Amino acid sequence: MIDRRRALAAATASLFAPYLARAQGAAPGWRPSRPIRAIVPFTAGGPTDVLTRMMSDPVQAMLGQPLVVENRTGAGGTIGADMVAKAVPDGHTILVNDSAHGVGPALIARMPYDPVTDFAGIGVLVFAPLILSVNARVPANNLQELLALMRAQPGRLNMATTGVGGPVHIAAEILRTTAGVQMEMVHYRGGAPAALAVVSGEAQMTILSASASLEHIRAGTMKAIALTVNRRNALLPQVPTPEEAGLPGFVFENWRVAAAPAATPAPILAALSAAFQSGLQQNRDRLAQLGEELRPGFDTPEAVRAFLRGQVDQSVAVLRAAGVRPE
Rank of each mutant, 00 (worst) to 15 (best):
P18C: 06
L235Q: 06
F307D: 13
A9Q: 13
D3L: 10
I170D: 00
A212N: 15
R34Y: 00
S200D: 11
E145M: 02
R5F: 13
A192T: 12
R34F: 00
T52M: 07
L143R: 04
T206L: 03
E70W: 13
I170L: 09
P154V: 08
M150L: 15
D98C: 09
V50T: 15
I268W: 09
P139H: 05
A274F: 08
A224C: 02
A100L: 11
H216K: 11
N254P: 00
P129A: 02
V50K: 14
R189H: 06
G180C: 03
P41S: 07
A306R: 15
I170V: 15
N141H: 12
G77V: 05
M55D: 07
A219Y: 05
L280F: 04
T300F: 08
L8A: 15
Y188L: 11
G166C: 01
L132T: 06
L235I: 09
R218V: 10
D114M: 03
P28H: 10
A274P: 04
R5P: 00
F127T: 08
S200R: 14
I79L: 15
E253T: 15
H187F: 12
G297P: 10
A197F: 02
D313P: 01
G190M: 09
L227V: 10
A152Y: 07
V134Y: 02
M150H: 04
E243D: 14
L272F: 03
M159W: 14
M1P: 08
V318T: 14
A148P: 00
I2D: 01
M185T: 06
